[in-house]
Structures are given as C-alpha cells and as structure tokens.
Design a protein around this nucleic acid. Structure first.
Lengths: 210, 210
DNA sequence: TGTACATCAGTGAACGCGCGTTCACTGATGTAC
DNA sequence: TGTACATCAGTGAACGCGCGTTCACTGATGTAC
C-alpha cells in the first residue's frame, strides 16, 4: 500500500499534513500562541517544509480558512437543500452551528483573533475580508433559495440576515470563551431560530424585497 | 495652579496618565501590537514607571477594563432610569451601544483579543471572567428594574437577555473590523431593539419568570 | 526653622528568550540521451 | 537498461529583532527630633 508517489503528489501530501497539523495547533494554542516550530514538529517535518509550502504564518492560516470554507458551506448547503420545510432548513443550520461550536469551541475565538491580527495589515486584511465575504455570499444565496422554495420573504437583504446570524453565533461563542458553562448550546439553537424568524415575512405572492 | 502634590497624589496622577496613554495605544494597536515602551513614552515616562504602578501588561489591561466598566455602566443605568417608557429605555441603550461603536470601533475587537489571550492563563482568565460577569450582573439588574417599572416580563432570565444583547452587539462590531462599511450602525439600533423585544412579554399581572 | 536620615516613585540599562524568516546545502526524484 | 546531469522538497542552523520583565540606582519628598 506504500505506493510510490511522484514529486508533486508527495509535495501535496506534505502540504496536507502540515495543514492538518496547523489546524490542530492553532485551535489548541490560538494564533499568536502557535509557533511554526510546533506545527512542523506535529506534522513530522521542520520549519523549512512549512516555508516550502506556504509563504508564512499568515498564508498558512488563510489556507485553513479556505479549507474550512469548503466543508462548512457544502455541509450547510446540503442540509438546507434536503430540508422539507423552511423550519427544517433553519433548524438544521442552527444545529450545524451548535455542533460546530460543541466540536470545536476554539474555532470562533481563533477566527476573531486572526481578524484582529489581519486588520492591522492591509494585504492580510483584504485576504481575510475576501474569505468572510465569500461565506456571506454563500449563506445569502442559500437564504434566497429558501425564500423562493418556501414562498417567504426576507425583510432585509439576505446578506444582512446572513451577517446578523453569523454575528450572533460568533458573539455567543465568545461568551463561552471565558466561561465554558455560560449559555449552553441547546439554548442557542432556539435563540438563533427566533432571531432569524424576526427577519421573515410570509410572502403574499408578489411584493418587493429589500 | 501648579499645586504641589503629596507623594500618593503624585503617584495616583502618574497612574492615571499611564492608564490614559495605555487606553489610546491599546485601541490603536491592539493588545499584542501594543508595547509597554510605547505606552510609557506616550505618557511621558519610562517602562519602569509602568511596572511601578501595575504588575505587568495584563494587570494594566485589567485596570482599563475596570475603568471602562465604571463609566459604561453608570451611563447605561442613568439612561435607563431617566427613560419614561420601556421603549425609551431600550432605545436609549441601543443608542449607547451604537455611539460607543462609532466613537471607539476598536474597543470590541480589542476586548475579544484580550479574551483570547486571557483564556490561555487560568489566573488571567478568571480575572477577565469576573469583569465580564460584573457587566452582565449590572445589565441584568437593570433589565429586572425595567420589568418591574413597566410591568413586563422577560421570557428568559434577565442575565441571559443581557448576554444575548451583548453578544449580538459584539458580533456585529466584529463584522466591521475587516470592512468598516459593513452593516452601518443606524441599522444596528433597529436590529438590536428587535432582538431584545423577542425576549419580552407583557405582564398579565402575576405569572412566573425564568 | 533647620538638619539628618528614610522612603520610594520613577530611571535606564541590561537580560533572556522566543519566534518568524532566511539561506546554503543535500539527497532523492526526474529527465535527456 | 544505464549513465550523467538537473531539479527541488525538505533540512538544519543561524539571523535578527522585539519585547516583557528585572534590578541596582537616584534624587526629590517625607519624617523625626
């Protein structure tokens, strides 16, 4: 099974291993607390290997952002598209947020830590902003699809609903940072749903949005 | 007017000057980006003066937290107590949040950056958590007073309403970190009000809370 | 009102260390003939 | 199928620098008599 790999394959594998190690170390130690040395060691390489695959610490983190974007959005879209009612769809997504928070409570704090860091450098700020915009775009698109499928209307632009929902989830995740017992996650699902419903209006057929 | 000061007065003045300088530098550069050297210089002293008045960088930041707690809560309580209706009171507080965000957009990111840092060290985590708890307690108390004065009921514990409101405001503030034009603040006031109203129920006289 | 000693807020320089980044090098993989 | 050379992923050590913290010292303020 130890198939001989070509050079590009071998390199891609190394990149993946470093990325996986980086995810773990960043989650465990935070952005500033993470050293490239530890990532390299965790992956079974030296720091040089990191620099051979990524431009630096920031670039490495952006790669993690991209990776996460992929699976989180596909998960979210799948759940919404399988749903048989609007309520189902919203509920499923609330649950996904809660599960993510349960499984990786350190993620949102880590992301925000990176944001504060990125906001200090124009280039990195742009790169991070682009990723966040992409997330909002996907969720907005999803909300739009739901509105059409289930004949409802959003009182404000779907993108704003996406922003509000994400901001709320993030804010609540941060509440658990200093006190993990604060505001348990099962409550969160209900709170999240109520918040989103605030922006909903049944559609009397036509009518204009925004 | 250059009154001669006693030693304790002089020291208190130095402490205040360092604290004021620290607030500015922290807001401008973030927690990790701030150096004690710059704070000292900004205040017109040397680093030694900082260590003569504070135990270190963390302790200095905690002092800023305390200072801010004082004026933010007194502001908030005053606004609520002057209000003539529940709507007035909520609206006034929504406006205070928005004004704070307008005037010091860097505050919430800074606070969260500190939280992520504090969460890594048990002692500092506790200290930061205590401050946050105090804020929640004050707001919860305020919400309780409002409920009694205006004969309404909170659907969940006031402390949870306080948490939800704060978390939402914080989450939205973070949205503006990477893109300052995102989700303008005038919209925020309305969103905040709607969110809080979700937790309100008119009081048919008696009835149990929690 | 004056003198001698004690205190201590703030100085300034040095310490120590961690960490992101760079770079000359190596040896396995790939290519040309 | 084999040989000579080129490539380049990953090594390992060094660089450079910033920064939080420490500490012996100083000189103005305070105290005792």
């Amino acid at each position: 099974m130890t198939t001989r790999l070509t050079r590009p394959q071998r390199k891609a594998r190394t990149r993946d291993e470093i990325l996986a190690a980086a995810r773990g170390v960043f989650l465990g130690r935070g952005f500033h607390g993470t050293t490239l040395d530890e990532i390299a060691e965790e992956a079974g390489y030296t720091k040089g290997a990191v620099y051979s695959n990524f431009a630096g610490k920031d670039d490495l983190f952006l790669a993690i952002l991209d990776e996460r974007f992929e699976w989180r959005t596909s998960e979210s879209l799948a759940a919404a598209r399988e749903a048989e009612s609007l309520d189902d769809a919203l509920r499923a997504n609330a649950r996904l947020y809660a599960e993510a928070a349960r499984h990786e409570p350190a993620w949102e704090p880590l992301l925000v830590e990176y944001w504060t860091h990125a906001s200090r450098s124009p280039a990195t700020r742009k790169a991070a902003a682009a990723r966040h915009d992409a997330v909002l775009d996907v969720v907005a698109q999803l909300l739009l699809e739901l509105a059409q499928r289930f004949e409802i209307e959003w009182k404000v632009a779907p993108r704003e609903v996406a922003r509000v929902g994400g901001a709320f989830a993030r804010g609540m995740a941060l509440e658990r940072l200093l006190d993990p017992t604060a505001s348990p996650l099962d409550r969160f699902e209900k709170q999240f749903l109520e918040l989103i419903r605030t922006y909903l209006r049944p559609n009397g057929k036509g009518g204009s949005a925004e």
